[in-house]
Write a protein that binds this DNA or RNA. Structure first.
Lengths: 200, 200, 200, 200
DNA sequence: AATGAATGAGTCTTCATTCAT
DNA sequence: TATGAATGAAGACTCATTCAT
């Protein structure tokens, strides 16, 4: 008789929004943005098609929201490092943080890769990530130098490439890719190389 | 009517087909398959929209043809190595061949990456490449082992990842990525690591 | 529960209904029926969208109600003339009554004009107004004849047209149209014409 | 075998465009812009729905085109007067020109009336007509003064209103409205009034 | 009586594909 | 072989209406 409580109403809306975002993320990541229809998103999210557009004005806005919210959520996790450790531990923590992000949200990483391959979307993603990446790469460069790298710039490139390469393989078939073994192998290779001439 | 004109006619057809394929490749690589319209392809190829469909029954067939023809063309170049050399030279030749392919056809590599991120297309590309990749990886594994790798399997993964990571960065902005420096750095790192205990 | 609260409840309902009708009238008149959404009506009426449909089963019913109630309300005012005066005064009273209706409810008149231009709605409006208009025009015709018109039928048309023409201009921009001056001018013209040969 | 001649192709396109414009004009005039669907337009124009949008990017653009092209076409006819005559003949010519426009294109006039009643469209129509109307009303005012009007401004209003009032009645049911008789009656009334004190 | 989230039929618009020439 | 007008199925988006509370 009385209308739904303000609280309940808000909660319902938040839940349906989340369902839409989640369904869209999966479909965008697996089929691409353009190939994904609003109908499919609605079906997977188990809401009506119309409801999507009470949350987002356009299909594009769903992707925009994903990039805004989800990426924003991920960067701190991926790049946020605590300072109270040795350079080596810091380095390992960084690598592992990134890898955990990939393991926790492979779809999001896969989508990011996709957007990066798309002229129309690349800029947006770059802009979003730039702030974090600059800080990250700056810190990483110093760390690498401390660990004994002779050429921290190129090593940074190598690490960045490593992550993209892992992402391109792991996120499309997580169960088939030995992500941890490969990571350990790569890290060991780097560390053993640097160790030989550590910055005193 | 005369053999000459028939010849000419054939040639014109081949040329317009090539123009379509080339335009489609660029657009597919930069915007994605679904986001590319037949109109855009026709415009870029400077042919009429109708002509596209005399060459290819559907838009999908254009992509299929690209994958068939272009990829088919690339694999031998990328993986074809002449045998008359030392393992080290062979290894370098392999790496360089792949890199040259990327430098010569960044759009094609970019498209391949994209297709790999797409559930509906991944299988196709995998199938196409499988034969070559198996041979390639087999050969590479042996080569690496000969060069002193302690763990040729993981090193293979590393190299594969390296190429994907390079591709993800280089093909979207070739002018910004120091592809050769990074490659040299990576190769040097691998070789120096293996050198220490070469398989005699 | 108590009679008091039931009373209050009824009153509240009547008020919200009125708000809806009033908001709908303005929007229908300014944007047209089809271009007006239930959301807009709710917003302007400061009620929830759902409430609209407790008062009216369909959006159409709102317009129907406006026509029924409002037009019904207006006709007696516009056409109701008291008899205790000279033909000239009666004539002036009629004209002024109509004009006052227009000045009091320009939106309603504007809406009526609009409905008249719409094949699907014209009939309805015509039917509603017919009874009054027939009486009115009959009375007007006699009045005009008494005042000396040589051709009361055509003069009736002229007067009818005059009102529509005024309406088309005044109701869309009341502040810009010198409605009284124009009315006085028109009335004076008619009366001076008839005066020359008044039916004794 | 060879493509349609450039000529034929152009002609086809022009014809289908005309069919769309014509169908849209009728439907917009009779049902209103918002209540008219693209499907209806296509059906009445006997073209496919898709074809509409090769001519016009949006439904709105059809209306815009009608206003641009058709109104533009009408104004010179309605307001274009040849100078080589007496003021009285000029005046009659003006009135008749307007009336002929209404008789030739009642749907267009009806649509114009409708747009005038719509807040969102009124400005556009006003702007389109302003240039002509200013010239027209300026000329008319002088003409009226020459013909002996004591108050040319108010007489201009009267004439403008007369046209709008006629339009509101004639264009929705041309067969029912004695347009010529009413016009003659009105013109005679004005002229006889002015005659009594012509500007010498 | 009142709310606003949810629905889905309906509308506008796009675009791969066809077809007459 | 080549053209581009034409088609219509499919997709994005709107909005009157319903419904749980």
């Amino acid at each position: 008789m009385s209308p739904r409580s303000r609280e309940l109403s808000k909660q319902m809306k938040a839940e349906s929004r989340k369902a839409v975002v989640s369904a869209a993320l999966e479909l965008f990541a697996k089929k691409g943005f353009s190939a994904t229809t609003a109908d499919e998103i609605a079906k997977k999210a188990k809401v009506s098609k119309g409801l999507i557009f009470t949350h987002f004005a356009t299909k594009q806005d769903i992707l925009l929201a994903i990039v805004d919210e989800q990426l924003e959520r991920l960067f701190p996790i991926a790049f946020g490092n605590d300072d109270a450790r040795s350079p080596r531990d810091k380095f390992l923590a960084l690598i592992n943080a990134w890898l955990n992000v990939m393991k926790d949200d492979p779809l999001l990483i896969r989508l990011t890769l996709q957007l990066n391959l798309d002229d129309a979307w690349r800029k947006l993603v770059k802009r979003k990530g730039k702030r974090y990446i600059e800080i990250y790469l700056g810190g990483l460069r110093d760390l690498i130098a401390q660990l004994g790298s002779k050429n921290p710039d190129l090593d940074c490139y190598l690490i960045a490439i490593f992550f993209d390469g892992i992402a391109a393989n792991y996120t499309v078939a997580p169960e088939l890719f030995p992500i941890d073994a490969v990571k350990d192998h790569f890290v060991e290779m780097l560390l053993s190389r640097w160790k030989k001439s550590p910055k005193r």
